[in-house]
Design a protein around this nucleic acid. Structure first.
Length: 409
DNA sequence: CTCGGCATCCTAT
DNA sequence: CTAACGATAGGATGCCGAG
């Protein structure tokens, strides 16, 4: 039995949400002028996160440095991101989507899949329902979405990416050759830069070329998994279910591009402590521990390296994590200046109770109490309220925006 | 030969 | 003139050494 899946995607989400707020305040509509959401163009970390359609006409692309965007369009209006606004809008948008079926998967802050297969009797006309959802979001919330209607997630996602904004598109099996196959192969979901260039080198230019190519040849080109996936996607095949449950995190990480290069072990360690503090607190909030710590760093030539270590025992103690991180950087950093430093905790352990040992490690218990005290203060006053004295001077460089702020009410 | 550990690459929003 | 450029997460892959 064929499924019925919708993919609902907010058009230029961050920019639309900022624009909708301004319009509600009687201010001009950012969507009608060349505008972007992005960082400070004077800082090297400033990139374009979202763009208006007029900005796109100047050749401005998502992800490009703010400085080049301004060069392409001197009058460009740029607005700094406001994450709390996005969380509010995201929730409102998902609430409407969820009214149509119990089976909704949050794919990102601005995208959902909904499974409408079981809704045939309540919503007998899928296209009409798709239009209704789209129009309700526009009229009630003040921003537009695209809806893709298909038999599986990949086709629904490809369909929602057709003409924008404020559109409903279908991609049913019989439409695949005409609507999807003519597209450049790089437009296929999960066909990124690397896969696209390998395929192009083999003269596979369109999704149709890929769909009709020999599967074992594609696997040879792209590797076993990626080859299999892309070949199936190109043929419109995707069995993956729409899943409501939010999966537990498999890792916690923080990385920071610094404004001033890190050229001493001291500066690096301060960053690592600030990151250990933030990332371990997030992990503890989820009642998780990690068994692996890794550091990542990037030099001025953009060469990125990483070094990791598996622990003999899982931990959630900031101090332990920081100690391992210091050791890792000591073992792997060659002294060259760095533009980025990061800390990741993986190999997550969610087994409830830790084993009681006969010998209680007093030091460990004390550190744990300190962490708990810090966590509860953070819980009450927010992440910013408490800092270790030694990290205060680097703290403003640490980006504390994280998933916990995004998810969950 | 298989497996775990590790470094790196790829992809997404 | 070029290339320049985020944070976070998950998965894949290739290599190496141990058993």
């Amino acid at each position: 039995m064929d499924r019925l899946v919708f993919h609902i995607d907010v058009n230029s989400a961050f920019l639309s949400w900022e624009a909708a707020r301004r319009v509600a305040n009687g201010e001009p509509d950012l969507r009608l002028i060349p505008s972007v959401i992005g960082g400070d163009p004077k800082k090297r970390t400033g990139i374009v996160v979202a763009k208006s359609i007029p900005a796109k006409k100047y050749g401005i692309t998502t992800g490009e440095p703010m400085a080049t965007a301004v060069r392409k369009c001197p009058g460009l209006v740029s607005v700094a991101p406001d994450f709390s606004l996005y969380v509010k809008n995201s929730k409102a948008f998902k609430k409407i989507c969820k009214e149509y079926t119990p089976s909704m998967e949050s794919f990102s802050i601005d995208e959902v899949f909904i499974d409408m297969s079981g809704m045939k009797y309540i919503y007998p006309d899928p296209i009409k329902t798709a239009y209704e959802i789209k129009d309700r979001i526009r009229d009630e919330l003040g921003f537009t979405v695209n809806v893709g209607v298909a038999c599986n997630k990949v086709c629904a996602k490809m369909a929602s990416d057709f003409e924008k904004p404020d559109k409903v598109h279908t991609l049913f099996p019989e439409e695949i050759p005409t609507k999807m196959w003519p597209l450049p192969v790089g437009d296929l979901f999960t066909c990124g830069k690397s896969s696209a260039s390998k395929l192009l080198a083999a003269d596979i230019k369109t999704i149709g070329d890929l769909a009709n190519a020999d599967i074992s040849f594609i696997k040879m080109l792209l590797g076993e998994k990626q080859g299999e996936h892309l070949h199936k996607y190109a043929n419109g095949i995707d069995e993956s279910p729409v899943t409501e449950e939010v999966e537990d995190a498999k890792g916690y990480s923080a990385e920071t591009t610094v404004e001033e290069d890190l050229d001493s072990i001291d500066k690096i360690n301060k960053m690592l402590l600030a990151q250990a503090d933030v990332v371990a607190a997030r992990m503890r909030h989820d009642e998780a521990k990690c068994r692996c710590v890794s550091v990542t760093f990037r030099n001025l030539d953009f060469v990125t390296r990483s070094h990791q270590k598996k622990l003999s025992e899982s931990t959630d103690v900031t101090e332990v994590i920081y100690d391992v991180a210091k050791k890792l950087i000591l073992e792997s950093w060659n002294g060259e200046p760095l533009r980025l430093i990061g800390l990741a905790l993986t190999d997550i352990d969610r087994e409830g109770y830790e084993q009681l040992s006969f010998v209680v490690d007093e030091r460990k218990e004390k550190m744990k109490k300190l962490d708990n005290a810090l966590d509860s203060l953070r819980g009450r006053f927010g992440d910013q309220s408490i800092k270790r004295a030694s990290t205060i001077d680097v703290d403003k460089r640490v980006n504390r925006r994280h998933k916990a702020e995004m998810d969950n009410s």
